[in-house]
Design a protein around this nucleic acid. Structure first.
Length: 383
DNA sequence: ATGTAC
């Protein structure tokens, strides 16, 4: 097996550090240093880097951490509940009007429907951030209409109720200002410090965290609804998974805390691992018991260049206009030019390698590959 | 990542 994993035992507390990535899947040294630093935190049991591991603000992204006795809100980060939702669209892919949709589709600002009613249907309480419910957000968030490129596991594909000739909609978004407010309130008191499990403060954080996770899921559902209203098609939610969270988990007879920071769950059924907007996305099914990977998977391709580097390098070689089409002939709606350059496919690692690493590590099987048809980022010119 | 930091 070409997948290399390194096990490092550290002096007390002995947390396991493991990076699941082949030598072909280049991981920045800084990301591994951040992973090792997290492993030295009090109570930490395991720190696992997935093949999309890359440096973050203090803690790395593309990683999962388990701890005992206390947990760390800053490891979850500001976008509590961020994740991926996939919808099966009731329209044949060959009927897609990508060019027309690219010119008229608009998912910006507060939704003018019954927001409270929508939240009630989703079983979620209002948060005070409802003006942002149903908005994509910035950074690497998107809503993308996709077609099925190839089915690799016909049975698993059919079990999801999917058909190869139909359009799909993938939404990557989170809890917008809500998660940010929750993290800020915590950091104001505790900085990067953890919370003692079972304490009043831990309980209060987890209540707010769980609400943000549910609200983020509802946010993805409303983004999907607005896109589907825009193209005039019905849809069914196929899956929705969160890749930024902390959850309790019984392991080795103890109560542990599983932090996921840009790590998809390996214990909730199939997930989509998106490439960049100019690459395939992978619908995969977890394999194995997850114990060696902290029950987690890669959540995307992972950034190769920083946003600043991407802006500089890609501006030299491409016009903004040329970046609104991809090698798949798909369309990109992104009227913020800086964001268009920052999120260019060239700024990301190759998703194929990331997924191959997961397959070779015995963590997933590929169900299908999905190709972009239309990627929606923003119509806003704000920088 | 963020109705964006001071």
């Amino acid at each position: 097996m070409s997948t290399a994993s390194t096990e490092t035992s550290l002096p007390s507390p002995a947390a396991t550090v493991r990076v699941i990535a082949s030598p072909q899947s280049w991981v920045e040294g800084e990301a591994v240093r951040q992973l090792e630093a997290v492993a030295r935190l009090p109570g930490m049991k395991a720190a696992v880097g997935l093949p999309d591991l890359h440096p973050g603000k203090g803690a790395p992204v593309g990683a999962a951490f388990t701890s005992e006795g206390l947990f760390y809100p800053y490891l979850v980060g500001n976008d509590i509940g961020c994740g991926m939702g996939l919808w099966d669209v009731g329209m044949l892919a060959r009927k897609a009007k990508a060019e027309r949709w690219a010119s008229k589709l608009e998912v910006e600002g507060p939704w003018n429907g019954d927001v409270e009613g929508f939240l009630a249907e989703e079983g979620v309480k209002p948060s005070g951030f409802e003006g942002a419910l149903g908005t994509v957000g910035g950074g690497n968030h998107f809503a993308e209409l996709q077609r099925v490129d190839a089915v690799h596991d016909a049975r698993a594909f059919a079990e999801l109720g999917l058909e190869a000739d139909r359009l799909l909609l993938l939404v990557h978004s989170g809890s917008r200002g809500l998660g940010e407010a929750i993290l800020r309130a915590h950091v104001d008191r505790h900085a990067a410090g953890g919370l003692v499990a079972g304490s009043d403060e831990a309980r209060a954080y987890l209540t707010r965290h769980d609400h943000a996770v549910a609200w983020a899921r509802a946010n993805r559902a409303l983004v999907a609804r607005r896109v589907l209203d825009g193209i005039g098609a019905p849809a069914r939610r196929v899956l929705d998974v969160c890749h930024n969270s902390v959850t309790p988990r019984r392991e080795d007879g103890a109560l542990r805390w599983l932090h996921r920071k840009g790590a998809a769950p390996a214990d909730e059924g199939p997930v989509v691992i998106p490439g960049s907007r100019g690459a395939l996305s992978y619908l995969v099914a977890p394999v194995g018991d997850g114990t060696g990977s902290a029950y987690s998977l890669a959540h995307g391709a992972g950034r190769k260049w920083t946003r600043t580097a991407a802006r500089e390098r890609i501006k030299e070689r491409f016009t903004a206009e040329s970046l609104t089409r991809t090698s798949f002939k798909s369309h990109v709606v992104c009227e913020n030019k800086d964001l268009l350059f920052e999120e260019a496919p060239q700024a990301y690692k190759a998703i194929d390698r990331v997924v191959t690493d997961l397959v070779e590590a015995g963590l997933v099987k590929v169900v299908a590959t999905l190709a972009p048809v239309l990627t929606y980022k923003t119509r806003s010119h704000e920088e």
